[in-house]
Design a protein around this nucleic acid. Sequence first.
DNA 1: ATAAAAATGTCAAACGATTGACATATCGGT
DNA 2: ACCGATATGTCAATCGTTTGACATTTTTAT
Lengths: 326, 326
Amino acid sequence: MKPKLNDVAKLAGVSATTVSRVINNHGYLSSQTKEKVFAAMRELHYQPNNMARSLQGKNTRLIGVIFSDISNPFFGELVSRIEKILFAKNYKVILCNSADDPQKERDYLQMLMANQVDGIIAGAHNLGIEEYQQYGLPIISFDRYLSDNIPIVSSDNYQGGWLATQTLHQAGATNVAIFTGKSHAGSPTNGRREGYEAYLTAQQLTPHVHELPFELTPALKMMEIKTIMTQHQYDGIFCSDDLTALLVLNVAQQLSLTVPDQLRVVGYDGTALIRDYHSELTTVEQPLADISTLLVSLLLQRIEDANCTLESKYTLPVKLIKGITA
Amino acid sequence: MKPKLNDVAKLAGVSATTVSRVINNHGYLSSQTKEKVFAAMRELHYQPNNMARSLQGKNTRLIGVIFSDISNPFFGELVSRIEKILFAKNYKVILCNSADDPQKERDYLQMLMANQVDGIIAGAHNLGIEEYQQYGLPIISFDRYLSDNIPIVSSDNYQGGWLATQTLHQAGATNVAIFTGKSHAGSPTNGRREGYEAYLTAQQLTPHVHELPFELTPALKMMEIKTIMTQHQYDGIFCSDDLTALLVLNVAQQLSLTVPDQLRVVGYDGTALIRDYHSELTTVEQPLADISTLLVSLLLQRIEDANCTLESKYTLPVKLIKGITA
DNA sequence: ATAAAAATGTCAAACGATTGACATATCGGT
DNA sequence: ACCGATATGTCAATCGTTTGACATTTTTAT
């Protein structure tokens, strides 16, 4: 059996209360007793039972992290960073891949509640999950509107869309398309498209918006892209994520379009993976380090003080990563 | 305050015991009472407190999943799959990025113990963590020796190394190098190198082993690769992971080496990401679906019956994914 | 009508740790 | 020798749920 607080007490030759006091550094304690107790704890490999502790009203120090799928490198990097920051602050992450399935997301919420998590960081793509409002739990959202009192952290999508389009334009493109996912009302991600449209309009150019269904497999998406690129002779394409940009570059090669002479491409996200292994790609980098730091710090503020007032929206600046594709 | 079992009982007009019985489907229950109770639970959005439940000796249904870093697409995909399978079986994942830091890995183990996880799936790269043996906890390892009674699941690294090298050879390469990470004693990953060496030896060819320190940044690794490729005129390179293969292809381009005529390249892993976005790369695919299914199924067997006898090693066959780089 | 089966209730002891109230003991300083 | 500070102990309630023992009532079948 696993050692319990009482076993430690017996071995150290002190009372259970004293052991608890040592663990929680509560009340008067001589360094000798502390040492005795610590020694006993080490000897037994004792670990206080977190379940029992949190029954007293102590925090569980568990945080639910809901994203659509960490096998997407963008979410992989983001979640990895969030986990690292939380671990350093002695919090643990319960990982939830919602797979863009609203029902799954609801189930996850239930589960997180049942596990008494102290808070949630949510960045999946399903909207209209009313459940988020019901639980009076600290929640911070990434790049997505959940409900009025849930703060949103996002990169400056509008600015990013503008910047990307400007880059394409200044690289010589005049017939510029955007490849984006289905737009959801209220999703900050729409900002990328708005920035794109705003820039083009300001330049008296016509926007060409292509919505690629999010759930397409990459192979199907590539076919779709090929069709589009064959039908239209774009000389600049802004992809609202880097993976799509890779597909576009792929298709460009298939169609023998030279990049960036005949076709200019700009992506979005700028993960470490892309920067390291596709430095040729010009892209708009989301400040993942800042985003994850901010997500965590806001969440912890809410956890420590449920009534602390937070902004409803935090927008972090993006940066252009210059490759050779635009 | 969060609703408790008693609140549900009051609202449903039954005793607390009955509510508990309904939840646990224990003893005689009429469908009317069940319905009443369920209705009350719904109305209050009641979620039984998992902390309190597991104090009774009930399982926490928490699984610790330790990998070096999910921002690596290989681990990202693997963990994502593991999480999905576990969620379907009503288990939750506590995510641990050990960052290849032994101390962090020890801390994680402690933390997982404190949180009463039912089991652990470990696939980090640190060896010699004695702690794994101390806890009498169900553990399954991926591709890594932990201790005698901890089963290892891995792809057939030896076969994969052989296959990769054979592919390079049959594509016309005779001066074949391997780029691999530092070899750790007891790590099944060494099998890739052994398969490589065995094949070459069988063909009376000389192995050329280059160990690239695992912790190098991609940029530094690329420089290192460039140096090596300039000094030696290899016509075939087997990379023990796909990301390194991408770097090699990159360097090949910088050095104006045509692929696959002057240089043939084979990678290892074959994640969805690589297959989807780098179909040009010839690589050895690890059966991630089977690996994750097996990892979970073995772990659950151990959890259900601590004494069930498992093999000490499960080796799953690999598959060559034919691209155009070899 | 009667016995067995089914349905529900009451009560209380766990689970493992925390914490406050209170008692007691040891120590140093004066 | 006495005060206060320091150190430790005992005891019991608490957190939310489960579960067994036992009692009581209702339903069903014969």
